[in-house]
């Protein structure tokens, strides 16, 4: 997630579009999708886990699908423990890096893992 994230509950919103191996947009309605996230090397935000698209973390599918133009929305958010995030800003800056793997229509996109960086800049 690019940029700072001032305060628990703040989210960043993205829009993705699914393309095939040739780079062509897949104009397919309701391709089932879900994601899994694992922490990589840095975790100074002390994140203990992730909530992913489907209710039971890192599993799917769960009846979330693409729009007819092959797009879907993603909302990323972070809630770090006391000492880091408070309403309106961060007491101490922190960063957690994680890998996110999408699964589209039962295919794990292991060749296109998204490197996430949850970051909260010190603002106090």
């Amino acid at each position: 997630m690019a940029g700072s994230n001032p305060g628990c509950g703040t989210t960043r919103t993205f829009k993705y579009q699914v393309r095939d191996q040739f780079g062509q947009v897949m104009l397919v309605y309701n391709m089932q999708l879900w994601d899994s996230i694992v922490t990589t090397s840095t975790n100074t935000c002390n994140l203990g886990g992730y909530n992913t698209t489907c209710a039971i973390t890192n599993t799917g599918p769960c009846n979330v699908g693409t729009f007819a133009d092959g797009t879907f929305n993603e909302n990323l958010g972070i809630c770090a423990p006391a000492g880091h995030l408070v309403s309106g800003g961060c007491i101490t800056g922190c960063t957690t890096t994680a890998d996110q793997t999408w699964n589209i229509n039962g295919i794990s996109l292991s060749g296109d893992v998204k490197n996430l960086s949850y970051q909260c800049d010190r603002s106090w």
Binding site: G48, N51, T52, T53, N73, N75
Partner: peptide, 16 residues
Amino acid sequence: SPALGTAGSIATGAGD
């Protein structure tokens, strides 16, 4: 338990 945080990724699409 230690004060752990959580992060989330929620996708939304068709029908929402």
